[in-house]
Design a protein around this nucleic acid. Structure first.
Length: 433
RNA sequence: UCCUCGAUAGCUCAACGGUAGAGCACCCGGCUGUUAACCGGGUGGUUGUUGGUUCGAAUCCAACUCGGGGAGCCA
């Protein structure tokens, strides 16, 4: 290719002193009469190109001055280390080739409002902050999957189109399935239990859908959830797996995405403390603690968002809140044999006000009780026949958990809203772009 | 569904009953080390919609539309 060496900006240090060609876009430019600074981005990073008029000639210098924000350009130059440059390197430009002159770009480099940015999410994604978040998102997913794959879990995805609700029909997106009603999955868990009985340790990872009218920084209508499920596993082992798994994920991001965390100005000292084991607190103690803090609550009341924030502030690590009242939890959770009014479950509450990151429980393994619970919850028996079968044919103690990807990313990145943690957030009454 | 805040130039905001303005973006000019560069000039508005109060409404009132934050519920 014309003897040119194409370089990715993320690997620019490997080309110090050499002439390379970068293919990207103009992020920003500054210029004086005879010297222009063009900041080039190529998706992998940002680098400043220095264009001297007497080095490139009048015509090319004029081109640089006329470039609009986000114009696509191919830039050739010599890589030089320079302490004045944020990335440590800059490019002494010898040639700039215009691929396409961009129209006036809507997103200037000044501040913008949320509504405007969300309407331009397709362009907002190009900015350094969003790029950093997306790179961390990718690393979080890879770290989570690596940990599970290294611990004998098998990826076994569950359907998105489902005939009935996992936990009730009030918050489901309904769609038409050849004349029958179908629903977008709100959890892969029940199918995951079938998978676990087949493969032992499994996980599913995919989008889930909740048609809740929730309009808060902690909610998306479409979010990604990773749900491991383990046969022959009780709730104690379940929690140990969660803390190992999550601590590994956080430490992996600290190790591999330090530059991105710096871009986000994340206080990484808080993340460095996220190592197993995590503190635990029973629901009973949580209620007493909340009362002592002046919260108007009582035993049997579910924990609300402000309750979770208070509980999450006690420790610097995520905290397990264990053994909630049976009445406030899902039908499939196994009651504590010594104390049936509570279930063998835990919610993992993140620190710094990030709320519930993980919901988990040991599942009912007794077919009689399962049948009874389904009737109590007025769930359609026909639709759940296959699920009841799981406890009829070789039932075993089994447990699992679901972790919200965007909430985890939000916490690791220190975001103040989930909408930045996913490329195209689906929010209440907002499905564009 | 409820509570609460908001809507003025392409963007971020000011003007709070009396001539709609600034910064940025954009256009023109200047500048050889800029870091959201800077300096000078210029273009740019039916103040979300409808109605009301008033001599006069961006400003006060009502309804509606759209959006932000939160509650409930959840990950």
């Amino acid at each position: 290719m014309d003897g040119l060496t194409y370089a990715r900006i993320s690997h620019i240090a490997e080309y110090a002193g050499q002439e390379v060609t970068i293919r990207g876009w103009l992020y920003n430019k500054r210029s004086s009469g005879k010297l222009a600074f063009i900041i080039i981005r190529d998706g992998s990073g940002f680098i400043q190109g220095v264009v001297a008029k007497n080095a490139v000639g009048d015509e090319m210098f004029e081109l640089c001055n006329s470039l609009t924000q986000e114009s696509s350009i191919i830039v050739t130059g010599t890589v030089q280390d320079d302490p004045r440059s944020p990335g440590g390197y800059e490019l002494q430009v010898s040639k700039v080739e215009l691929v396409y002159m961009a129209e006036e770009y809507p997103i200037s480099l000044k501040e913008h409002g949320v509504d405007f940015l969300l309407d331009h999410r397709h362009l907002w994604l190009r900015t350094p902050r969003q790029v950093a978040i997306m790179r961390i998102r990718s690393e979080v997913i890879k770290a989570m999957r690596d940990w599970l794959d290294d611990h004998d879990f098998i990826l076994m995805d569950t359907p998105i189109l489902t005939p009935a609700a996992c936990e009730g029909t009030t918050t489901l997106f309904e769609t038409d399935y050849y004349g029958e009603k179908a629903y977008l999955s709100q959890s892969g868990q029940l199918y995951n239990e079938a998978n676990a009985m087949a493969l032992g340790r499994v996980y599913c990872f995919g989008p889930t859908f909740r048609a809740e009218k929730s309009k808060t920084r902690r909610h998306l209508m479409e979010f990604w959830m990773l749900e491991p499920e383990m046969a022959y596993c009780d709730q104690e082992e379940n929690m140990q797996i969660q803390e190992q798994f999550l601590a590994y994920t956080v430490q992996r991001v600290l190790e591999k995405r330090a530059a991105e965390l710096k871009t986000l100005e994340r206080d990484t000292s808080k993340l460095e403390k996220i190592i197993a084991p995590f503190p635990r607190m029973s629901y009973d103690d949580a209620i007493e603690y909340l009362k002592s803090k002046g919260v108007d609550t009582y035993w049997g009341n579910d924990l609300g968002a402000t309750d979770e924030t208070l509980l999450g502030e006690i420790h610097e690590k995520p905290v397990f809140i264990t053994n909630y009242p049976t009445a406030v939890k899902a039908f499939y959770m196994k009651p504590d044999p010594k104390r049936p009014e509570v279930v063998l479950c835990s919610d993992l509450i993140g620190p710094e006000g990030y709320g519930e990151l993980i919901g988990s429980s040991q599942r009912i393994d007794d077919p009689q009780l399962m049948f009874q619970r389904i009737k109590e919850h007025n769930l359609p028996e026909d639709a759940y026949k296959w699920y009841i079968d799981l406890s009829r044919y070789g039932s075993v103690p089994h447990s699992g958990f679901g972790i919200g990807l965007e909430r985890t990313i939000s916490w690791i990145c220190g975001l103040d809203h989930l909408r930045e943690a996913i490329p195209f957030p689906r929010l209440l009454n907002r499905i564009y772009p």
